[in-house]
Nucleic acid binder design. Structure first.
Lengths: 218, 218, 218, 218
DNA sequence: CATGAATGAGGATTCATTCAT
DNA sequence: AATGAATGAATCCTCATTCAT
């Protein structure tokens, strides 16, 4: 596999991925426009011309990010959720935590920020992001909420909107990783726990709600 | 003699504000770097050179946005909340709706998007945004949650985190106004109602409560 | 003459001259291109538009400098030399000192600097400067040298070149007034005295000296 | 296959020097401000962007001129003077001629013009020019005059000022190469000879002045 | 396959000039 | 006669992209 041990053929296969990783980091740090190809190349350990051997241009690098980096993570996340058994509440907890582990706390948290910033300039990429990530992610949340409502574990709520209410703090936790002030200091896990606490109280039927974690009195 | 009614309208007073409005719109649409000064000028109804009569450069325009546009809105919002009486739940509803009216559905919803995108490139502006907007906004939410907990109307929750959970969907609703897909189609008011429904259920004490939202008297 | 005592009619007559004075100072300090019309206006105590009431544009201001400021000084200098009696040596001393007083140590010393810097960009002005100033000045020096040679007071020298050798240090003394380093610290009068000392020794017949190169006859 | 022999010649080493040469010529012709980067690039045979590969900007090009172009010439001139034996008069003649050959009649004669024009705008460069060129040049002249006075070959003169008197015509000869009128027509060598004739007569002891070099006949 | 010198279109900024007031 | 807001051509500089090596 490495018949030709020449310096530059060493990692022929790995190059495109390395370039995308470098690009993602930089796009997230500085934005698409403010990131120079030279910087991407430098961070990927190559020189100015090399990215053009693998991508048609800066915009193509941007477009490739979603396909190449997001999809595998989504597949992984879905695999982790697959076949999980338990109450709706338990499944919701698990979803939120898996989501955070496989995306929120990885370099992929950069993508929502990038999309907020650049969706308007790259509708095509935004469509891809929407179709692959948002729709797919929402489906997972929708499923568990609907199941909870159907089984009577959850109150009857406006499912389509409730799922966005539920996702919003998770996404915000990803976005704020890139803000130099404010939210930045929050502990993500405690943030997610608080979210789940509020949401499950908000969703669950009250009467038999012995769920109350903080004060299980009564 | 006056075929061309007014080649320029000599409005020294109004110009800076017009330029900032134009800049805010464009920065939100396309991002800071992708917005050309010419475009800002054109949208403000002036030509290339005019913005430089009032601002030292593009960056100064950016910096001025927060001070000039955000502060008045915040003052207005706080005035609308001032002296409002009612239960914690009622106050929370009102805060969320006032917030949305005075910022979410105005052109100011552009600022959170801008900040997500550019905070890293303009830490100085991010600090201003944080100090003037985030800190001040959070204080309002913190106050009402704390009051609710103190009066026994709300459960004991992790206030500092709960307020972020509460804010997140409101901010997300602002951000998604600029996304071409997905969330964009949601009805903001229904979204906020759903948020309040979930949050109030999540916050309120739930004795034998048959869900009575506003005033579970009796 | 001042029937209309309105604020701005006060010095109608003086304006153009004030503007030229301001322009000369600034052109000498910073060069033609680096001097903004605003600066000229400000130093003349008027605003941006006013210079255009008196001059067609920046270049016309430049052109006017020579005519308006240099000629009077030259006339004055020639008047001071007129009818002066004495040996060639005495006349040379007087010329150099008058020259220095009426031009070297006044703001007119700016003109040689300006001409060195801008002659190439304004050949028309350079021609004017040459015809009015250089030619006229050289004529004065030529005259006294020729008279000295004719009377036998001076050696026979290459008059046409000697006059330039004689002028050069005077001009350099004017130029170096604008250099921040080096020559700047020299005392002009001592410099001129040294020049005259050397030149007169260089020009005068050496009593018993059989040195006479060109025309060893007599 | 090679219809267009070489679109660019890939001469990393030579470029900076070529650009500086082009810049020096143009700065001397038109002045710093009036010279466009495009012109410098064009004269150097490259395009707009290339100068920026080697210099941070226009000002850096200006600053580099002194260091890169002047120093080698000065070293060369000093080498040519090194170890020269002869009377003070002979040494003075030689200095003036070497000076003229290695600087006056080369493209370096542009530097004094540039400095007269721009010293005020670039004090930092002026300092460099002063320290490297003026101080060093003056030292050479000072040395020979002092030696002449010490040996009795020259009269006792105001050395510090005499050297400036001596330098001034040499510098003026450099400056006037760029004036479209007047001095321009003079023959530099005849000018220098006249200078030396006058100066040596002016410096030398008169009585026993059997100095007559050119025509020691009698 | 990789490099990096060179390109040149694009965009920020300046400032001489105009003209309604 | 004077002002100064507005203009827009001119110019510096950046950086995505190309291509000879």
């Amino acid at each position: 596999m490495d018949l030709c041990p020449k310096r530059w053929s060493r990692r022929k296969e790995a190059r495109p991925h390395e370039i995308l990783e470098a690009a993602l980091e930089l796009f997230a740090e500085k934005g698409y426009a403010a990131t120079r190809i030279d910087e991407i190349a430098a961070r990927a350990g190559v020189t100015r011309g090399t990215p053009y051997l693998y991508f048609a241009g800066k915009e193509e690098i941007f477009k490739a990010l979603i396909q190449e980096l997001l999809l595998p993570a989504l597949d992984e996340a879905e695999a982790m959720l697959d076949g999980f058994e338990g109450s709706a509440a338990e499944r919701l907890r698990r979803i939120v935590h898996v989501w955070w582990q496989s995306m929120g706390e990885t370099r992929l948290s950069a993508l929502p920020k990038l999309m907020v910033a650049e969706a308007g300039n790259f509708p095509e990429v935004a469509k891809l992001y929407n179709d692959l990530f948002i729709v797919r992610g929402e489906a997972i949340f929708r499923q568990v909420i609907e199941a909870g409502v159907a089984s009577g574990e959850f109150r009857t709520v406006d499912v389509e909107y409730a799922l966005h209410v539920l996702c919003a703090p998770v996404v915000m936790a990803m976005l704020t990783r890139y803000m130099p002030y404010g939210h930045a200091a929050l502990d993500p896990l405690r943030y997610l726990d608080c979210l789940l606490d509020l949401m499950l109280h908000g969703l669950q039927q009250c009467p038999q709600s012995a769920e109350s974690k903080e004060k299980p009195d009564a």
